[in-house]
Write a protein that binds this DNA or RNA. Structure first.
Lengths: 144, 144
DNA sequence: TCTATTTCGGACAAGAATATCCTAAATTAT
DNA sequence: ATAATTTAGGATATTCTTGTCCGAAATAGA
């Protein structure tokens, strides 16, 4: 469904968010250990999240990554997905046609429409804060 | 959503189906022209469809590809998707966790559940015959 | 100021997906 | 039988994603 990068991006953001909740800044090491991801590759993921203003990065000793309270309240799952995979998943044609819409549909267009819209809606309404709270409360998990 | 191979696989199957409807066997050339796909790569796709008993292939002059009436009645979109991409799209965790279920959920588990199930249901109930009929009747399209 | 820590960013490596090429095998028609 | 047509399948090439490595830049603390 999502690329590996996007999966790591979501996990990393949620881990950072759940710690920023408690006022804790976390490092690359913390993150890659706690979301069970390759460290060097995760560094790239974090750079991307940082450039997309999804997370904030601080260099130097006691540096690391965090999410501002303001960001936390506005961030949605769709923002992360968009940064890594674009919005093809819920916008583009199920069998890859450039032009595919209600007036000139591909064979699967009508059957995919609802699902795509539901996915879009879910991603756009799911807040990072809510997901992070689930983690903080121990109701959900980022690794086995 | 699906791999390029899977997209070609669906398009090829539908093109063949819509022609088998009319009793016409179609060649690799026909197919790659009409679904707008690279010929050599499409040959591989057709081999895979053939090995998975989704389509039948006949060698030699006046050979080509077709779908038996029996197959046409039983084939569902899910069969093609499974042959190329497996069933990860509607079975595996949204952020790639090995173990992710109702009793030990990842943060997005509950929000993805319905969508995944709807997708599964759609793929398993959508018949190739119905999709092919839409094409034959000129209601839907495989290329722009 | 010096050192240790941490992120940044460019170059490079490995693997998977996509795509091509060429010869073999089968089959039809002459 | 021979020639022509069409799929089968192995080898190879290209591109994209995933992943690693290493030195540079920033910064906190001694």
């Amino acid at each position: 469904m999502f690329s590996k990068s996007c999966e790591y991006g979501i996990k990393a953001t949620l881990y950072i968010a759940s710690n920023s909740n408690n006022g804790n800044r976390v490092s690359l090491n913390d993150i890659s250990e706690n979301i069970d991801s390759p460290k060097a590759f995760t560094a790239k993921i974090l750079q991307k999240l940082s450039k997309n203003k999804i997370i904030q990065s601080i260099k130097g000793p006691s540096g690391g990554f965090e999410i501002t309270t303001e960001n936390m309240n506005n961030l949605r799952l769709s923002h992360i997905v968009k940064a890594f995979d674009g919005d093809d998943i819920y916008k583009s044609c199920g069998i890859g046609l450039e032009e595919c819409n209600d007036s000139k549909p591909c064979p699967v267009h009508s059957r995919f429409k609802n699902i795509r819209e539901e996915l879009k809606r879910m991603l756009e309404t799911t807040s990072i804060l809510d997901l992070a709270n689930g983690l903080t409360e121990g109701l959900t998990f980022l690794k086995h």
